[in-house]
Design a protein around this nucleic acid. Structure first.
Length: 813
RNA sequence: GGGCCUAUAGCUCAGCUUGGUUAGAGCGCUUCCCUGAUAAGGAAGAGGUCGGUGGUUCAAGUCCACCUAGGCCCA
């Protein structure tokens, strides 16, 4: 037999073999006769051997043998036993059994009624009366024992073998598996109840329920409750010399049993151990057993122990069981289990309904954080650098809560800039223009239905976001909720505010009311994620009108389903896709957005039915005079391309899909398109499949103008910009140049956004004079000029590269 | 040794439940545009064997099996 722990050979009690494996009696080249598992013989006796006999392991049962050492007395032992866990992958197929030092050994030896003899003291040293190694630390005894084995001729081979061995995580002392009597809770008796409780529990992620945690319950073993320590909750069991036991339930009961008032005694060691009582059964003196209770029991008792139940009940009944518990995945066999086990034992109900099981955070290289490696990121330091809300938002929304995640400064700084700061700046914007307009959030506002389309869109989006965040949080999915909020903030800032700025400059109550409401919903939805920022925003913007001092005292926002307009959402999405294409076309054409263009042609399903307001959004954003539908123009100007829509075709044609797709690609696109448009369907010749009927759903059509346009298209939608710049358009472009330059000068001069100015201009260029004649009023309105004067004047010079002449402004006092 | 999870761009992560032909976002990088809230915003570009192998399927990042690597718990 072989072992990696020679010190346990002193306690050798039996040898285990695998009953179903074949064993061989062999003679080695040295003439020695040995028994080993047959399939391992070749590896052990590489110099050759002769098989004298062979038999299954089961035939070896109860055969006696001489043990390696006779240093301690082990009666009625030392024969071969059968154990299924023995393998013939490694070693000799003969497994040394020392039941005091291994759980498997203990189980198999107990099955044969073998004694459990332990010559090692609790301090890890051999008993003093053991010959040769008496008083030696267990791990230090190996050397002497191996030498003694060698001397006695019983050592077959001694080799270096690398294997893992448990050590104390703090002082690195080798640890010992050590059998000792313990107190147990018979949790196996409530195994079915535990499984039933688990069935009634929601796990996030769901795989844990029947995976890691379910497996653990299925393989439940009794809870080893006692610990041989000093600190801890003393096990409240008293025992007399006749082994009668009494379990004590309270200090009052203990006083009664002891015959004196001990209620003032500290119920911990050493004081509680001074209390003795006459045994209720035999009247002999009973003393407390020395063990304390596993501290994990205390953790599982938290739900009732924390409120002093049953001595004081408080509102315990109302708060049990808890709605949810949130801990990291390593607590599966820890707190999750103790809470469920004790709850089920005591109240026949687990102490929680939902579990959010977090993954661990890792360092930036994906390693787990540990003091040992020095890669620990201090949470307080992260909060000092980025803010507590940033750290919190990142944890909740920056990835799956239940997945291990890398954490670093960069990732957290990112969410601040991207989402939190954008939110904050939008709030600042609303605050600024609300103040300038002396707008009162409690005052009357136009009904939502009477507001411009973009306002109705924003209110609809806010309610959609609210609705979807609500449903994500119902599923404990903070990541999805966070993404929905972040997307909405982006839409809010970079579409609604961007497109609506002018209305805020004018103090439009509809715009102010709309943004106020959108921010109110956002702030409420974000409050659980970023409690500090939202609280500040709430107090600044909402507390006075909402009648609630704190966002955390406000009710969760209720979705107004009547304000959700899915078709408007769909239409606005189309508008934004067309705008994106238009920007791309602008960029490739080299004509800057400041230069107005006369017209664009748009080809996209649904464009023609968009409201004029929405089409105007595209014109405004892209600085166009008009945007018309392409298919109203001369068909000869249009290039048509058609691609197969595999998703639609696949469900119809299955295996033949590629044939149809090829046929569509080969067909005359213009003819196919006009046939589908006029008749709703068209025919293509698909090889051996013959004639196949195709409808609009089966294809993706892209139409683009042929010549003289800047074009961008994607996914069947396209926009073409007419690049012809008339003198009129050119002068409009120059006016925009002037506006931009004046704004920049205002900003550089430190003027406030609401400051009024006086403007002077002078130029000898006829074209520029013409431009001023046509656009002066428009420029004045844009730059808040109370007067536009032709001539030299003004304090702050404005430099405009493309506009010859002199421009200057002065702040109005 | 067992159970469960994870692997997608240089980095951090979506997408996988319900398979569809140009695989997305942000950060970083290059070029350009815009700017009257914004440490902002927009466009174009470079950057991907979707860990590997095999299978199912007309079609696989997505479904299945196995393997490799990492993580957690247990032995």
């Amino acid at each position: 037999m072989w072992t990696t722990t020679p010190w346990t050979l002193v306690s050798n009690t039996a040898v285990a073999v695998k009953p179903t494996a074949m064993y061989a009696v062999v003679r080695t080249v040295d003439g020695e006769v040995l028994v080993v598992a047959e399939e391992l013989a070749a590896g052990l006796f590489d110099e050759g051997f002769t098989v004298l006999d062979r038999m299954p392991g089961s035939a070896l049962e109860r055969i006696a043998y001489d043990r390696p050492f006779t240093l301690v007395d082990i009666p009625d032992a030392h024969y071969v036993i059968l154990a299924d866990y023995v393998t013939t992958d490694d070693g000799s197929g003969l497994v040394h059994q020392a039941p005091a030092f291994g759980a498997d050994d203990l189980v198999s030896c107990r099955a044969y009624g073998l004694p459990v003899v332990n010559p090692v003291r609790p301090d890890g040293h051999f008993d003093d009366d053991v010959p040769l190694i008496g008083g030696v630390f267990f791990k230090k005894a190996d050397e002497a024992l191996v030498a003694m084995l060698d001397a006695s001729g019983r050592l077959f081979r001694h080799v270096q073998y690398e294997h893992s061995y448990p050590h104390c995580w703090r002082c690195h002392t080798p640890l010992i598996y050590y059998a000792q009597p313990s107190w147990y809770i018979r949790t196996t008796a409530i195994k079915d109840d535990l499984i039933a409780q688990n069935e009634a529990t929601n796990w996030f992620p769901s795989t844990i329920k029947h995976g890691r945690f379910g497996d653990w319950l299925e393989n439940n073993v009794d809870w080893a409750l006692s610990r041989n320590r000093y600190w801890g909750t003393p096990l409240p069991i008293w025992r007399c010399e006749n082994d009668h036991l009494v379990a004590v339930g309270s200090m009052a009961e203990l006083s009664e049993l002891a015959g004196r008032d001990v209620s003032a005694t500290d119920p911990h060691r050493p004081y509680v151990d001074d209390i003795t009582l006459p045994c209720p059964t035999c009247s002999a003196v009973a003393t407390r057993v020395p063990e304390v209770i596993d501290c994990w029991y205390d953790s599982g008792a938290m739900p009732f122990a924390a409120v002093g139940y049953p001595h004081e009940s408080g509102d315990f009944a109302a708060q049990y069981p808890a709605d949810f518990i949130c801990e990291a995945i390593d607590q599966t066999r820890g707190w999750f289990y103790t809470l469920m086990a004790i709850g089920t034992l005591v109240f026949e109900q687990s102490s929680y309904k939902n579990v959010v099981c977090l993954g661990h955070i890792l360092d930036e290289d994906g390693r787990k954080m540990s003091k040992h490696l020095g890669n620990v990121l201090e949470p307080i330091g992260l909060m000092d650098d980025h803010g507590a809300d940033a750290v919190r938002w990142f944890m909740l929304a920056g990835g799956s809560p239940w997945q291990a995640r890398r954490v670093g400064h960069g990732a957290i700084a990112d969410v601040v800039r991207k989402t939190l700061l954008t939110y904050w700046n939008t709030v600042a914007f609303q605050s600024l223009y609300g103040r300038l307009a002396e707008w009162d959030p409690a005052g009357p506002a136009p009904a939502v239905a009477d507001r411009p389309v973009i306002d109705r869109w924003l209110i609809s989006e806010a309610n959609r976001m609210n609705r979807d965040v609500d449903s994500a949080l119902e599923q404990f999915d903070t990541q999805r909720a966070g993404r929905l909020i972040a997307t909405f903030i982006d839409d809010l800032s970079n579409w609604y505010v961007r497109r609506s700025r002018r209305r805020f400059w004018d103090g439009d109550p509809a715009a102010l009311a709309t943004l106020h409401e959108a921010l109110r919903i956002t702030t409420l939805c974000m409050a659980p994620f970023t409690p500090f920022i939202t609280e500040r925003v709430w107090q600044d913007l909402f507390a006075s009108s909402a009648g609630t001092d704190s966002v955390h005292l406000a009710s969760w926002p209720q979705v107004d389903a009547d304000l959700v307009d899915e078709s408007l959402a769909h239409d606005m999405a189309l508008v934004r896709r067309i705008v994106e294409l238009g920007r791309a076309a602008r960029a490739t054409s080299g004509v800057r957005t400041r230069q107005p263009l006369g017209r664009a042609l748009v080809s996209a399903p649904g464009w023609a039915s968009l409201s004029a307001d929405l089409q105007q959004q595209v014109c405004d954003e892209l600085n166009l005079v008009t945007a018309a539908a392409l298919d109203t123009e001369d068909a000869d100007l249009v290039e048509v391309s058609i691609k197969a829509n595999f998703r639609a075709l696949g469900s119809r044609f299955g295996k033949q899909t590629p044939l149809v797709a090829t046929a569509i690609g080969a067909a005359d696109a213009t003819a196919l398109q006009s046939a589908i448009r006029s008749a709703g369907a068209a025919q293509v010749e698909a090889a051996e499949l013959g004639t196949v009927t195709i409808t609009a759903d089966d294809v993706v059509v892209t139409e683009t103008p042929r010549e003289g346009w800047a074009v961008a298209s994607e996914g069947g939608e396209s926009i073409a910009l007419d690049l012809l710049i008339t003198d009129e358009l050119r002068r409009a472009g120059l006016a925009r140049e002037v506006v931009r330059a004046v704004q920049e000068a205002r900003k550089n001069a430190g003027f406030e956004v609401a400051d009024r100015i006086e403007l002077w201009w002078s130029s000898t260029d006829a074209d520029i004079e013409h431009m001023w004649a046509v656009h002066a009023d428009e420029i004045a309105a844009e730059v808040l000029a109370t007067s536009v004067t032709s001539g030299i004047g003004g304090e702050v010079a404005v430099d405009v590269v493309d506009v010859p002449g002199v421009i200057a402004i002065t702040r109005t006092r």
